[in-house]
Simulated assay, not measured.
Amino acid sequence: MNIQEHSEFIKLNDYELYTKAWQPETADNDATLAPIILMHDSLGSVDLWRDFPAQLASVSGRKVIAYDRLGFGRSSANPDVLSTDFVYAEAQQGFKALLQHYSIQQFIVMGHSVGGGMAVVIATEYQEQCRGLITISAQYEVEELTLSGIREAKTGFAQPGQLERLAKYHGDKAQWVLDAWTETWLSPSFRQWNLEHYVGKVQCPSLIIHGELDEYGTTAQAQKLFSGIQGDTELEILEGLHHMPHKEQPALVTALICDFVNDLS
Rank of each mutant, 00 (worst) to 15 (best):
S60L: 09
M110T: 07
G44V: 04
W22E: 06
A138H: 01
N13W: 09
S45E: 05
G94L: 02
Q105I: 10
H6L: 09
A138V: 03
L17Q: 00
I108Q: 04
L17R: 00
R69E: 05
Y126G: 03
Q100N: 14
S60G: 09
E90F: 09
Q4E: 15
G94S: 13
M118K: 08
A54R: 10
Q105K: 13
E125T: 12
S45C: 08
Q92C: 10
S42C: 10
L133W: 04
A119Q: 02
G94E: 12
D41W: 14
K63Y: 02
H101L: 00
A66C: 10
A34E: 02
E90T: 10
L17K: 00
G116V: 02
D68A: 04
T26S: 15
A27H: 15
L82G: 01
S83M: 09
G61M: 07
A89Q: 12
M118Y: 05
T124M: 11
V59R: 12
M110F: 07
S137D: 09
T32Q: 15
C130M: 05
K63E: 06
N29K: 15
T26Q: 15
L38R: 05
Y67L: 12
Q139D: 13
E25T: 15
Q106S: 12
D41M: 14
W49E: 01
N13K: 14
H6G: 08
L17F: 04
G111Y: 02
D51H: 11
L56D: 01
N78K: 09
G115F: 10
A119K: 03
Q105P: 04
Y126M: 08
G115C: 11
H112V: 11
D30E: 12
T19P: 06
E128D: 13
Y102V: 06
A77C: 09
